[in-house]
Every structure is written in C-alpha cells, then in structure tokens.
Amino acid sequence: MRKLTHDQIALKRAKPENISSVKKLPVYVLLNSIRSSYNVGSIFRTSDGAMIEKLYLCGYTPHPPINGDHSGNKEVLKTALGATESVKWEYVKDPKEVIKKMKADGIKVCALELTDKSFPYYELKKDIFPICLVVGNEISGVSQEILDMCDYSIEIPQYGIKQSLNVAVAYGIAIFEMRKIFDLNV
C-alpha cells in the first residue's frame, strides 16, 4: 500500500470545467438555521464529495457572498475550500418555500431528525430518489413546523450518552449512505 500524491488523486476527480456533466446524486439538501459557519463550510465540502444536486441555505444559516454582495460569511468560504464553486446552492430565507417547491416538483422531503416515526438512515430504499433532505439547527434540530411538512424522517442510531452527533458529521453519514444506495441501484 502506498499513499497517493495530490496529482494522482486529481487524475480521478471531476474538473471544474466538466462539473455540469458529472452525474449528480439526485438529492437536494435544505439547511435550516444552522448556526456555525464552519458546519456550513464542512457541509459544502461533503456535498461536493457526494456530488449532490443542490444545497439550499435557509433561515439564519450563514452563506457565502452572493453576486458581489460581500456581506456573506467568509468562514464558510474558508472551510468549504472551493466547494461553493462546485456545489449548486441558493439562499432562501423561508425553508417552507423550498419545501413547497420540492413537493410541487414531486420530490419527497425527508428530515434528518429523531421522531416517533423516524427509521434508521440505512433502511432507505432506491425508490426515494429524487429526495430533499432537511437538516436542522445544531441545538434544536428540525422544527416541528418543518417536520409537519416532511414526508418522513430518518435517524442515525445512537449508542452513547449524548444521543446526538455534530450536524456536519450526521449529514456526512446520511448523504454518503444515500450515495451508496443510489450507486448500487442505478
């Protein structure tokens, strides 16, 4: 076993000029009121790694600068390491607008949240695609108002004392499971 160099790794990666032709994972992700710009940047990087369809930043979720407006959060850019250029994204203040649009387009909406009806993330089936995954606030999670609009919810079983994971870590687990399900059933 020999570690690959950055040049060797780059040979296997999509190029920025070809990003529009890369087969995307048919998953839209809605981040609602994430507090930490570092979590948002990390989610951008993970979204690039899984090559999702689109990321929606909602509520008070920090976002990169928009069209020359430099009021966006520079920490998002720093942590994202360029993924804001390879992942389609949009800031929409009201998450309900995004959910209504998804449903109008026939896309099921799934919360990443512990609920009385949630099931383990690894039990998702291939017929879920396309899907919109809703990820909530680091402390309060996905609000009941948003949960009421979701078709179902998935959870990551917890075995320790804390009963929760960092939001960016939880997202990474869920999105790569979705990538695996999609890739195995294409």
Rank of each mutant, 00 (worst) to 15 (best):
T61Q: 08
K103P: 10
I154T: 00
V167K: 06
T79E: 07
K125L: 06
P120A: 11
K125Q: 10
K100F: 12
G172R: 06
M149A: 14
E138C: 03
C132Q: 05
A50W: 04
G72P: 03
D69L: 03
Q144N: 15
T46L: 09
K74Q: 14
S140T: 13
D127Q: 05
P157S: 04
N73K: 07
V87R: 08
G59V: 04
L81H: 05
I99A: 05
K126A: 14
K108D: 11
F119Y: 15
V134L: 11
K103T: 09
L55G: 13
G82C: 09
I107W: 03
D105H: 02
E145I: 10
D48H: 03
I128L: 13
V169N: 14
Y122G: 01
A50T: 04
E90P: 03
Y121V: 12
I52Q: 09
K100I: 13
V109W: 03
L81Q: 09
I154E: 00
E75L: 13
K96E: 15
V142G: 06
K74R: 14
S153L: 00
L77T: 00
C58N: 12
C150M: 02
C58S: 14
E113C: 02
K96L: 11
D94F: 03
D116I: 07
M102Y: 10
K126L: 08
A111I: 00
K78R: 14
D127P: 03
L55M: 11
I154A: 08
N166L: 13
I154S: 01
S164K: 07
C150G: 01
G41F: 09
Y152N: 13
Y56E: 02
R45V: 04
D127Y: 06
I175V: 15
S164Q: 13
T84K: 11
E97V: 06
Y159M: 11
T46K: 02
E85Q: 14
I156G: 02
I175E: 03
M51S: 15
E145F: 03
G82A: 04
E75M: 13
E90L: 10
L147D: 10
I156H: 04
A83I: 09
N67Y: 14
V76T: 08
G68M: 03
I107T: 04
M51K: 01
Y171T: 12
V76K: 14
I139G: 12
G49Y: 04
P62K: 02
G72V: 09
S143E: 13
E85K: 12
Y91P: 00
C132D: 00
S42G: 15
F44S: 08
V98Q: 05
D148K: 15
Y91R: 12
I99G: 02
D148L: 13
I139R: 07
E138F: 09
L147A: 05
I146G: 11
V109P: 06
C110Y: 12
T84E: 15
M102Q: 04
Y56R: 03
P64K: 04
S164T: 07
T115N: 05
K100N: 13
L77P: 00
S164D: 11
L81D: 08
E113K: 06
V98C: 01
D151K: 01
P62V: 10
K162H: 05
S86W: 09
F176K: 01
N67F: 14
